[in-house]
Nucleic acid binder design. Structure first.
Lengths: 197, 197
DNA sequence: TATCTACTTAGATAGATATCTATGGAGAGA
DNA sequence: TCTCTCCATAGATATCTATCTAAGTAGATA
């Protein structure tokens, strides 16, 4: 899967920084606040915040609010998963071939050099490919206001209303009282090879 | 060791690039020349040369001269080795012991995906493993009120009273007039391989 | 309500690096 | 020796990003 490949790349990018590696080491012992980490690493709080955001982005770290402080903890599951992918070079091979992946070829046809969507596919099958890419722009386990959803989409295409509806329609995103979030992939609508339900 | 850490960091840095990940993928299938890779990746030869130098730098790739061409191949041993280091490195990725260390395999069987304790082991040996993990949630050289102890434990399991008693019983924590602290590890109760005193 | 604390976000900057073009070097064959 | 091929190195450039300061937000407390 292309998704595996990009997950792998995101994982390596996240770990390819000394400060973040050290943060992971500290979190391995017990959960920590931003302040504690800033002290331990001799960095300013915003810098630590930035690194933690990266680590949360790959799901390796989770945050637990407690008053005004946020306790950050490691999610060892992700680590184990990544180890399995590393040992099994199938996923690495798959990554190399990702350009050959039909989905990626479809997608690259609809993106311009800035990574923006040139047009919305008419074909349902291709639309699903594009929507998969679009929903990946949103963080998992995060709640968005509608305005945030629109802004995120508009960084990729002007017609945020249309694309927002499509994401909801394909159940790639969920909505309740004006709050939006990414639907876990297992709950997406089933589509066949032609993009039909 | 710092050296292990920097090796690990170098490894992640080397893998944290899309082109290099794809090169590794292609080399996983069979050895390739610089020209072939340049063609496959749609990059110029010097760029590929640069990436191969990085991969050779961490020992992941080796080159075999043959006339004017150099055949580059993957060294799968290194990939496995890196995995082991990733799991072994105490200073940077201590948590990764969880795969190698028998204790951590026991532990992972009792933890759910949120890092909470699913149940309290009946086996004494396994209980000790779980208690070691639990006591690591507390800071060293810090004094806790009983309510704090309970809260900390309850983030991991509902039965804080039972687990608090076990920690005290195994002398992993000490108590005096309602104040608790972590016992230095040297003063824990001796246990044999079956978890008996 | 006002203030303090812990954190996040925005914006700027400096350093790293992925990629390119141009050039150099070494083996193979005439 | 001359030339061709394949690759490496040097240097330039543009993009990325780790870090900082300044400002904003939200919970806790008085």
């Amino acid at each position: 899967m292309t998704d595996q490949g990009s997950t792998l790349l995101a994982f390596f990018k996240a770990m390819a920084d000394e400060s973040r590696l050290r943060i992971v080491g500290f979190l391995a012992v017990r959960e920590r606040s931003v302040q504690e980490l800033a002290e331990l690493l001799a960095l300013k709080e915003p810098t630590v915040s930035h690194h933690l955001a990266v680590l949360r982005g790959i799901g390796l770290v989770s945050a637990r609010p407690d008053g005004t402080t946020r306790w950050h903890a490691l999610n060892p599951k992700v680590l184990r998963q990544m180890n399995r992918e590393l040992l099994d070079n199938k996923s690495v091979v798959a990554f190399a071939k990702s350009e050959v992946d039909p989905e990626s070829r479809v997608l690259s046809g609809f993106l311009d050099s800035d990574g923006r969507l040139k047009s919305i596919p008419v074909s349902r099958r291709k639309l699903v490919v594009v929507l998969k890419w679009l929903v990946a722009q949103f963080e998992e386990n995060r709640r968005y206001r509608e305005s945030e959803v629109n802004e995120t989409i508009q960084r990729r295409h002007w017609d945020s209303a249309r694309l927002r509806r499509e994401l909801i329609g394909h159940r790639m995103m969920s909505r309740n009282r004006g709050v939006y979030w990414r639907t876990p992939q297992a709950e997406w609508r089933e589509v066949d090879s032609l993009g039909r339900y």
